[in-house]
Design a protein around this nucleic acid. Structure first.
Lengths: 272, 272
DNA sequence: TAGTGGTCTAGACCACCGG
DNA sequence: CGGTGGTCTAGACCACTAA
């Protein structure tokens, strides 16, 4: 059934390694719905028999699927097909993504509150040295102090994203509430705007990479789930005012932008 | 030196598995520059001695780093520290990302042409059934035919991204050059605009995930490199006109958006 | 407690790369 | 050719989960 690796077929098929056959077969079965989201896969022992392979080989195949983000695994329990509910953030509309607060009008476009999920967030404020990369974006001297307002968001106790906003020292000196450890009721962007510091332009950067071990721990993600990173630098008329780095679990989040005239979108229909 | 797994320390440290110690140690050394971009790592045999571990255990640790995108590996050669040159695409400025063509003014913001790299692209046009997800975005019946204009871009023969644009049948019927197999000189968006079909709004979606095996082959990426996916739907005054899905190697590409008034950014300085 | 996955070993053979 | 990584096996012990 499953060809041995190494001994190459005469002419063309150049047999795939066994562990890849295992992965490909299971991947196809997941795609076909033989195993649906949340289902348990057969145990390693059963797969070993089915594919006539050693345990390590079966594990190597399963590991591949884990690293593709298709499976979850944890000690003592069967491999499980991942299921995804995706949160969509419209970055061109929403200035502050604030959970469980005024959802006036259009404040964010999520499927969270509309599906009985329970969002919450952890919040903290620190005085820290502005990290090098942020300092460049804020155009402040490397090593300068600044305020970090940090937030980690959860949905039903699943970590969803972390958000770190840095404010330069000159701004904090002029508007000290930025450094206070409470959530700013009206939103810090609004607070600044009310005090004459208006953000009239944004520079957004989007990128992806695999999490570091710390990030993986913080967002409780295993291998195989990439991060989606969104860095927004907010500008007043003459200089950068703040820099926010939001780190999302890539498997649970999409970001959208609406540009230009979208009157044709008013009948949104089944558009994602 | 390196604690055994299993036998738990009395009170707290709960020793890490050996393969993680291998990975963590090497990761730190890469971060510290002990091994720079492009450098070879010591061979598995040497690492086995250094960490006093079996070959499989060392391999497991190395595999972790590969899956984090830090290392490349291929048969017969040493593990190599990945090096990244990142291409930045400003999605709010550039309608068509066209390689090696009129770079009038600001047409794209890359470090490619400015560093002596050689870009090129493969191009093809097909008549295909519009895929389900694209059909939703184009608001056409699922299963309907449409034109697919496909492009794969390279930099110095490294696959960089693939781009697939779907046009609905009604548009192609009215403007048949969309279905012709040549590159449209002036750009297809321009071609349409000249014929009265102007795209006045865009809906962009950004997401990340690990590549499927096909995608990994097409972009020549190994495990540990996530994809960055950008889906742009272009709208005329009353309906969607085209849908473009661009699939980037996440390790080589960033996307940016400029929103609002960015006069403060004119002195771009060291801002990325 | 039985069954699952997590970690680890020792050794084998192979394919590929470079000198 | 020698050295590298790629694949695979057989078996061991452990930690965790669920019944």
């Amino acid at each position: 059934m499953y060809q041995q690796a190494g001994s190459v077929g005469q002419d063309e098929p150049m047999s795939k390694p066994l562990y890849r056959q295992v992965a490909d077969t299971l991947r196809a079965e997941i795609a076909d719905g033989v195993f649906g989201p949340g289902d348990d896969l057969p145990s390693e022992r059963e797969l070993r028999e089915r594919f006539d392979a050693s345990r390590n080989t079966v594990r190597q195949g399963l590991q591949l699927l884990v690293s593709e983000g298709l499976l979850n695994s944890s000690q003592g329990r069967a491999y499980q097909v991942r299921s995804h509910e995706i949160f969509v953030l419209n970055a061109s509309k929403f200035e502050n993504l604030q959970f469980s607060q005024r959802e006036d009008g259009d404040s964010y476009d999520n499927e969270v509150l509309h599906s009985g999920r329970q969002p919450h967030q952890e919040f903290r404020v620190e005085m820290v040295k502005v990290p090098q990369d942020i300092a460049e974006r804020l155009k402040v001297a490397p090593g300068e102090q600044g305020v970090l307002r940090f937030c980690r968001r959860f949905v039903d106790d699943t970590p969803w994203s972390t958000q770190a906003t840095h404010y330069p020292k000159w701004l904090v000196d002029a508007h000290p509430r930025l450094a206070e450890p409470d959530d700013i009721e009206e939103g810090s962007t609004r607070y600044l705007a009310d005090r004459g510091i208006e953000q009239i332009g944004y520079h957004d950067e989007l990128m992806t990479r695999m999490p570091t071990p710390e990030e993986a721990r913080e967002l409780q993600i295993g291998p195989g789930v990439p991060l989606l990173i969104w860095i927004r630098t907010g500008f007043s008329t003459d200089k950068p005012v703040r820099c926010t780095r939001t780190t999302f679990r890539g498997d649970l989040n999409h970001i959208t932008y609406d540009l230009g005239d979208l009157r044709a979108l008013t009948t949104r229909g089944d558009l994602h």
